[in-house]
Design a protein around this nucleic acid. Structure first.
Length: 215
DNA sequence: GTTGAGCGTT
């Protein structure tokens, strides 16, 4: 017991480096109370920093939860995204050397370009496609005309922008539909049209309930 | 990590 206490106060022999580091101290270097105070200050500072970090994290989490739990906020942000999408086009086959400015110049005849985003990978290299967001919704239709137009000697792919369609390449098993069964002939052509802009066919969904008479 | 991919974020 006494041995330990003695060690705490006297056992630590300050080396030269420590002594030099303590030169600024107004109190004597060998005062153990000063050392202890100093240590406490350091730990207090650490705790304050931790508390600040925690507060920041909590604020972040609360914000996320808030937006996730508040349907109005979530719906609003979703609506904003969809609204922005309706004014945007997806541009594929963009040359790696293309700058957003060049893309903006290429599309400025269609309408007012609000912003151009060229997607990049983690190395900062362009992925070869971009989004062009216009101010006017009508500009999108104008921009689609520039599909297969050349930029840096490459034929651009201009498509209406969509979100969350990673499965364009993948085959999607469809839900069972009795009208699709073998031998059945539709009285009219299937609800598809071949898009002149995109790959393959674009589904058109019939909203039968909308036209259902209410009795 | 030196290319040609198909839908992101404040």
């Amino acid at each position: 017991m006494e041995e330990e206490e003695h060690e705490v106060y006297g056992g630590e022999i300050p080396d030269v480096a420590e002594m030099e580091a303590d030169v600024d101290m107004s109190a004597p270097d060998d005062d153990p109370a000063v050392k202890e105070l100093d240590e406490m200050k350091r730990r207090l500072k650490e705790m304050e920093e931790e508390a600040a970090a925690l507060r920041e994290m909590q604020a972040k989490v609360e914000k996320e939860i808030g937006s996730a739990q508040d349907p109005a906020t979530a719906a609003a942000s979703l609506a904003n995204k969809e609204e922005a999408d309706s004014r945007s086009v997806f541009v594929g086959n963009v040359d790696y050397a293309c700058t957003p400015e060049e893309v903006q110049q290429h599309f400025q005849s269609c309408g007012t370009v609000n912003r151009v985003t060229i997607l990049t990978d983690k190395f900062g290299h362009p992925k070869g496609f971009a989004y062009v967001e216009f101010v006017e919704v009508e500009a999108v239709q104008e921009a689609l005309v520039l599909n297969e137009s050349e930029l840096h000697g490459r034929q651009l792919k201009v498509l209406p922008k969509r979100t969350n369609v990673p499965g364009m390449k993948q085959y999607r098993p469809r839900r069972y539909n009795p009208y699709m069964s073998f031998g059945f002939r539709r009285p009219y052509p299937p609800p598809y049209f071949y898009s002149p802009y995109g790959y393959g066919k674009v589904p058109r969904f019939r909203r039968s309930t909308r036209y259902m008479p209410y009795y």
